[in-house]
Amino acid sequence: MKPRHKRLILVLVALALLGLGATFVLKAFRSNLVFFYTPTEVFAGQVPQGQAFRIGGMVLEDSLQRNEDGVTVRFAVTDTMENVPVQYTGILPDLFQEGKGVVAQGRMDKQGIFVADQVLAKHDENYMPPEAAEALERARKIKMEAE
């Protein structure tokens, strides 16, 4: 066997071992690298108890309320299956909107309200001019009325 072939085999074996190792690391990561939990997971009790975590989903339409103090807001985060009420005091990001994606960090209080200390907007991967978005929205409404 030429030394070149020997090295090739060595590299291939090393890569195979590495791939195997990486698979195990990924498996371990899968449970830890969760950036946010969905409302369904919250209700199923799959969230860390007694510590801060993040929930993610859509801001439920018509759920946004502002308190009299002007800086505290209440809204519900939904994944269409379950809704979690959220309370937050602070400035909301520009892209925060009803019906759009949101990720909030905080903890559950005793009344089942998620008290957030940070609210982030999660936008989607669609990019288009406003006119196109309006046209799509109109088409969606027409389709919904037809159904």
Partner: peptide
Amino acid sequence: QWWNTLHQGASVSLTKSPTMATSM
């Protein structure tokens, strides 16, 4: 795709048509 991330998904990929206006 594998995890819940704050970062949005890919707008351009080999498996689906791009989700961006043409000039963009």
